[in-house]
Write a protein that binds this DNA or RNA. Structure first.
Length: 290
DNA sequence: CGCATCCTCCGGTTGC
DNA sequence: TGCAACCGGAGGATG
């Protein structure tokens, strides 16, 4: 499941593949048409599949960037710019290929839902096994309020103050700290994996109520989240649940995770425990994390 | 109106 | 072998 470092890896591998390319045609899988006919906004959000195809065809991709776990493509047509926003959800992946047959794994071939044929003869294919991801065509980012409400990028100089300020708000201060660090309004890009790791590294129990953490603990936690995200980016992300960049390359961070998915604490060797926080399974060491 | 609490979307994976 | 339960980002509906 891609979090910020994995999305960063996807963006970096997308940039040389699509920058400056014109989208000659777009095709959407029959499965997506069927879902839309049933009244569901499967993957393509805000538009019907045909409207999406019509909107994007002929546009030139000016650049590809990332904001939190969202991928932003800037599209240009007739002097005006637009945004194509993608979220990989649980199981989304892009592939840079000449043909869908080049995708090695059957499940990604089977769920190739959006195909952009580019002017260099290659195809940018978006596959999404569980269809939790999204594609959204916007005139500008401001047209989608949830994107505007995201916390600053964690590497932004104002992100720490934002985090500390939001932690103190009544809405968040009463919640468990792990739920708060995974809330994109407080701190963006940190999902279950990196929240688990940063809490373990700072010896903070994920179930502690936010207001009970000292300022020093919150600062330390924020710093550790930034550190673990940076480390993961440097290692190419964590290849858990089939994560690959667009060239099919796995990351190396999964081997450096210390608590996510672990049954035994690597520090003290006691059995780890699990607790559901904000609907997600949370591993922690009851001995090390207080 | 703001906030909290579900609900929804899916299929590979897991467990019975 | 077969089948049902399970899991989860994040927007959106509901209370």
């Amino acid at each position: 499941m891609p979090e910020l470092p994995e999305v960063e890896g996807v963006v970096r591998s997308l940039q040389p593949a699509v920058t400056g390319r014109t989208i000659e045609c777009v095709t959407i899988s029959p499965m997506i048409y069927t879902s839309h006919e049933a009244g569901k906004q499967s993957i393509i959000k805000g538009l019907q599949p045909d409207e999406f195809v019509e909107a994007v065809t002929g546009m030139t991709i000016q650049d590809v960037t990332r904001r939190s776990k969202y991928i932003y493509f800037t599209l240009e047509y007739a002097g005006a710019t637009y945004k194509l926003v993608n979220h990989l959800g649980m199981s989304g992946a892009f592939f840079d290929v000449h043909d869908v047959s080049e995708i090695l794994e059957e499940k990604f071939r089977k769920h190739a839902h959006v195909t952009f044929t580019l002017d260099n003869g290659k195809k940018l294919i978006y596959s999404d096994i569980r269809r939790f991801g999204e594609m959204r065509f916007l005139r500008k980012i401001e047209d989608h309020p949830p994107l505007m409400a995201l916390a600053p990028e964690p590497f932004d100089s104002i992100a720490k103050d934002h985090f500390l300020t939001y932690c103190a708000l009544p809405k968040y201060s009463k919640k468990e700290i792990k739920a708060v660090v995974m809330d994109s309004h407080v701190l963006c890009g940190c999902g279950n994996i990196y929240a688990t790791e940063a809490l373990f590294r700072t010896k903070i129990n994920p179930g502690r109520i936010t207001s009970r953490l000292s300022r020093a603990e919150k600062e330390q936690l924020f710093d550790e989240i930034v550190a673990v995200l940076s480390e993961s980016i440097a290692y190419g992300g964590s290849s858990i649940s089939d994560y690959r960049n667009i060239n099919g390359e796995a990351g190396g961070m999964q081997g450096r995770l210390q608590m996510y998915g672990m049954n035994i604490c690597p520090m003290c060797h006691t059995n780890s425990e699990q607790k559901i926080i904000a609907g997600r399974n949370s591993y922690y060491c009851p001995n090390c994390q207080k």
